[in-house]
Amino acid sequence: MDGKTVNACLTLALEAQGKDIMTIEGLAQNGKLHPLQQAFIDHFAVQCGFCTPGMILSAKALLDKNPHPTEEEVRKGIAGNLCRCTGYTKIVEAILAVGGK
């Protein structure tokens, strides 16, 4: 919301009025995946996919602020997004790969 990640379950719809909302659906441009989306595929960072929207948008917010994060910064940046499948390692690798470019 307005460029910052927030939990939808804690945000009243009334308080989102007039705000710029970006969800995972808005990330791909003209049918072309965002580099983070492509990296998640390339690094096998998606299994069931439930956590993926939150992970990718958290990663985007992190890279917008800090384009070349360390592994620790990546782990802190996605903290709070729980993944039951991947064990996080692949997700961290995917984000680091985009951050390394």
């Binding site: 939990n7 903290a79 709070g80």
Partner: peptide
Amino acid sequence: MATVQVRNL
């Protein structure tokens, strides 16, 4: 404290 999303709110 908390997480990035919670600290943004």
